[in-house]
């Protein structure tokens, strides 16, 4: 046994190799620790499942918020307590108003997203795959990307009036860019070694696009889609508050005139929930489209 190796294992009476000569190690050595236990998670103080424990914080916040309202520390005109928000939600749902506004907003966002995401995707593919497309489109997109979307609002109103079109156009404009930028750079970033291996496997240009380049760009596209979804709601809130006769943003704006903070908070809550829903949707897409990644994340 080489000396170095022996020393590394040595200082212990637990090794059980009573017959082997003890090498000249550094004395009795420190106590041994259990390597397996080192990595075990520590037991928590509260014996509750993790999701329940994670919910405790937000629930506590709601409780404090409610108490502040109940004891009159914060007036209803400043911030309505959760109970008032809840009853406002119930009331508006009962009359069908909330559903109408929600549907109006959802339709706008969905149409704008559909347009913007497809435009961003198509432009990214053309610019990513063809040199001429790249030269013509990429610089153009980079310039347009620098324009603040909401700054276009007055112009869009002049062009399209006050109907549905300007809102959809704004959402489309605002969502095309994140999709474009991320998809384009993902296409450009596809590992050239994979392209080479595809080529030696006999793939032609079309085959390379279909089997190597586009699948390789999906992760980037999904990142762009995430940004687009968040951006779409942001744009929609502003657009609806400035210029609309229905939608959640309009509802909130009306509530402002009557100091109905319960409805305003309700609107915010709905936006939050929609954001969560959009995120869940993308995660579902990721799970389906990126199942091959599980190998790398060890979650197979």
């Amino acid at each position: 046994m080489p000396d170095a190796l022996a020393q590394a294992v040595a200082p212990s009476s637990l090794t059980g190799d009573g017959g082997a000569a003890r090498p000249p190690g550094p004395g009795p050595g420190s106590a041994l620790v259990d390597a397996v236990a080192l990595n075990k998670p520590r037991r928590t103080l509260i014996p509750l499942p993790r999701p329940v424990r994670r919910l405790a914080g937000p629930l506590l916040l709601v409780l404090v918020w409610q108490l502040l309202g109940t004891f009159g520390v914060v007036g209803e005109r400043v911030l309505a307590p959760p109970s008032a928000v809840f009853s406002a939600g119930w009331e508006l749902t009962r009359t069908g108003e909330l559903t109408d506004h929600l549907l109006a907003s959802l339709t706008r966002v969905a149409s704008g997203l559909a347009l913007g995401v497809s435009a961003g995707l198509v432009i990214a593919v053309v610019a990513g795959l063809f040199r001429l497309g790249d030269e013509l489109l990429d610089s153009t997109m980079q310039v347009l990307r620098a324009l603040p979307v909401l700054g276009l609002l007055p112009l869009v109103i002049i062009w399209f009036g006050v109907g549905e079109t300007p809102k959809i156009a704004l959402v489309a404009f605002g969502t095309a860019f994140p999709v474009y930028v991320n998809t384009y750079s993902a296409i450009r970033g596809v590992d050239h070694r994979l392209v080479e291996s595809g080529r030696t496997a006999g793939l032609g240009r079309l085959g390379l696009v279909r089997h190597v380049i586009l699948p390789g760009a999906v992760p980037g596209f999904l990142v762009g889609l995430r940004f687009a979804l968040t951006g779409a709601w942001l744009i929609m809130i502003i657009a609806e508050q400035l210029n609309a006769t229905n939608g959640i943003g309009y509802l909130m704006n009306q509530a402002q005139s009557w100091y109905r903070t319960d409805i305003i908070v309700l609107g915010l809550l709905i936006y939050g929930l929609l954001g969560l829903g959009a995120d869940a949707l993308v995660r579902l897409l990721e799970r389906r489209l990126l199942s091959w990644r599980h190998g790398f994340e060890g979650g197979a």
């Binding site: 070694r193 994979l194 080479e196 291996s197 595809g198 030696t200 496997a201 006999g202 793939l203 085959g207 089997h211 190597v212 699948p215 390789g216 999906v218 091959w292 990644r293 190998g295 790398f296």
Partner: peptide
Amino acid sequence: RRAVVFQDHRLQPWKRVLENVILGL
């Protein structure tokens, strides 16, 4: 008809093993 094996396997990560093997056939 020629084929290459590189130092790194260069399998397409988004295709299962069989789909990788028959890629381009």
